[in-house]
Every structure is written in structure tokens, then in C-alpha cells.
Simulated assay, not measured.
Amino acid sequence: MRLATTALALIATAVPALAEEVNLYSYRQPELLAPLTEAFTAETGIDVNVAYLEQGMVERLQAEGDRSPADLVFTVDISRLAAVVNAGVTQSVTSEVLNTNVPEQYRDPEGHWFGLTTRARIVYASKDRVDTSEVTTYEDLADPKWKGRICTRSGTHPYNVALVSAMLHHHGEEETKAWLEAVKANLGRKPQGNDRAQVRAIWAGECDIALGNTYYMGQMLNDPEQKEWADSVNVLFPVFEGGGTHVNISGVAMTKSAPNRENALKMMEFLTQPEAQEIYAHANFEYPIAPGTEADELVTSWGSFEADDVNLMTLAGLRADALRVIEEVDFDG
């Protein structure tokens, strides 16, 4: 497992130091967190030590147990947040600041995790071959007119599993299974690659529409090698029939062992304040969660949307069923 830290020697120890500090385990890359950690230290004088984990966060926390130096965990995707909570390695946090700044659907009902930013699961559509009015709902993707025209990454990737979980929430298993079978019939190629690869496929003429997350557009538009791909598509914000646009989150949770609990709570509250929210969202081309905050100008240029109001922990509870349905239709086959 590769680690990149600002204080690796400290993070590796099991005995908390007496300095004013807070220790993070993160699935988010250090450079994405650096603007936040630097701002927090400047405001509070509390040092922040970050251990970047490519995988195995839950297993590491379980192995360390009460000796873990980690105070907070940062991750993306509701399924990963739920996995940390379900493993019993987090603790409930009660904070008026957090409850005020984080809308109810973006925090755990029991206070074990709090969302920091959101990203929408949207449709990339060819500017040349697709009218922007042709896709208004996720259900539209099952229309036979898209036969051979849809691209997507693996159906079992967490981003797509979360979307299918939301479909289950809105329509139940029978309709969701029929929808998945119809979407599979419309695929122009076997599911493969990441979200950026789908945009490249549209640019190359391999398909006309694809599922993807909003923040990848920001990343591609700022990458000279990928800007041409991004310029070839429009961003469309479909909704569920009877619901809104599907969103997922980045979030933070306090570990059960947290040796620097007071400092950890200070950082959690800091992260939901407007200044920190906008720093984080702008760095990642995501949407800030706190009321009164705004996304980056580039992100807002893609248009507005109404987010689905289901609590994301509800979707996490449907993950196993979503995976089962995806495998039953052999979506990736």
C-alpha cells in the first residue's frame, strides 16, 4: 500500500503526540486536500498530518483498533462512507454547526459521517449528434432510440451502483431490472474504462451519450490533452421520474479511537464553513454543500439542477440489492 504523508513518521506511530494536531486517513489525494489543511492550520494553529491510502482503509483501522493514530477519514462515494461506519471504526458526532451547515440528506442520521461536497451523475451528450432535449430523465436511457449509442464504465463500479440504488429506491426491483436490461441493449460497446474514457469515446464517434460525474468535465477542460474531448459534449442533468438529479458525495467521519477528538471536531466544523467549502469545491470542480456557498464559475456554467432528496444512507442500504440486480442482468457481459 502506497502512503504519501506530510508527517509519515508521526502517522505510523501508535502513541498520540502532545502537539496541537489532527491526523487524517484519506482516499482523496493529498494535493486535493492541501488548500484545506493549510487554511485550517492558518486559522487554528493546529497541524494536519495526512496519510493517503489507495485502498484498505477499513482493514487498516480495524487492525490498528484503539491504537490507531487516525482522527478523521476522508473518502468519496456513499458506499465507502457506509463501509467505514458499518465496520464499527467511527463514532457519532453531535454538533450544531455541522447540522446547520450540512443538509439532512447529506449526513448520517446517527451522526457518523457528514458530506462535504457533492457531484452529480449526469449525461455527457455529443454536441453534434444529440439534441439537449433528448435526455431529460434517467429512464430515457432505456428508450430504443439509443440502441448502440450509449457508453459507460462498468455497471459494478461504485458510481453506477449508487445510481442503480437510487433507481431501486424510486421504482423498485422489477422496474429497475427492466431498465438495466434496456440500457444494456442500448450500449454501443462493452462497459469499460473510467468516466473520462466515455467522453473520449463520444469524441471518437463510438457512442453518442454516456454516464459520468460532473467533476470530470472540470478536470478534462483543464487538461490540454483532454480538452478537445470535453469540448465535444454537452452536460445534461437528467432526473428520476418523480425525483431529482442523482448526486454522490465526498465526506468525512471521525474515527472511533480519535486521539485528538477536540481538534478533529474543530476541523470537521471548519470544513463545513463557507470559506472552506468553496476552497474544497473549487479545487475539485464539485458542488459545496453549506447553505449560501457557490460552486466554481466553470461548474455553474454547465447549468443548474435539483438534487434528489433521498438520504444517501438509504441508498447505501440498497447497495447489495443493486449489485445483485446488475449481476443478474449481466450488465458488463
Rank of each mutant, 00 (worst) to 15 (best):
P103V: 09
Y138R: 06
N23S: 10
E43Q: 14
N99F: 00
V135M: 05
S79H: 15
I46H: 00
D108F: 01
A63H: 05
S154H: 07
T137E: 14
L36R: 08
P30S: 08
A120Y: 03
L33V: 01
N23L: 06
T94P: 03
L61C: 03
E21A: 04
G115H: 13
L53S: 10
R129E: 10
D66K: 04
L72Y: 07
E64D: 08
V73I: 05
T117Y: 00
D131G: 05
V93T: 09
K127P: 11
V89I: 14
V50L: 12
Y27R: 13
S26N: 10
W113M: 08
E38I: 00
Q29W: 07
P144I: 02
S79P: 03
E139W: 01
N86C: 01
Y52K: 06
E134H: 03
E54F: 04
P103E: 07
L98M: 08
R67A: 15
P69R: 14
A34T: 13
G111M: 02
V73N: 07
V130D: 07
T152R: 09
R119T: 15
L53W: 04
Q91W: 02
I122L: 13
V22L: 01
T118Q: 10
T132V: 01
S154N: 09
G56T: 11
A19E: 13
D140C: 02
V135L: 07
M57R: 15
T117F: 00
L24P: 00
A34L: 08
A87E: 04
I46G: 01
A70Q: 05
Q91D: 15
D108W: 01
N99C: 10
P69Y: 07
S154T: 08
A63Q: 07
W113H: 09
E134G: 08
D47M: 05
V89L: 03
A42I: 00
N23R: 09
L33M: 10
A42P: 12
E54A: 09
L81Q: 13
G88E: 06
R149F: 03
P69T: 12
T136N: 07
Q91H: 07
W146H: 06
G65S: 08
V22D: 12
D66Q: 10
K147V: 06
L18G: 14
R129W: 05
Q29R: 12
V48R: 00
M57Y: 03
W113F: 14
V97H: 02
E54K: 10
G88K: 05
A83E: 12
E54R: 09
L32G: 11
E31G: 04
T37N: 08
D140Q: 06
V50T: 11
N49E: 15
E134N: 09
W113P: 04
G56D: 12
S133R: 15
Y124W: 02
E43K: 11
E110N: 11
S68Q: 12
A51I: 02
V58N: 15
P103S: 10
N49P: 06
R80H: 14
P35H: 13
T37I: 12
E31R: 14
L36C: 15
T118Y: 01
P35Q: 10
Y52H: 08
R119E: 11
F74M: 15
T41L: 01
F114C: 04
D128M: 14
V58P: 01
T137V: 02
D77E: 12
Q62D: 11
V135H: 05
D108T: 08
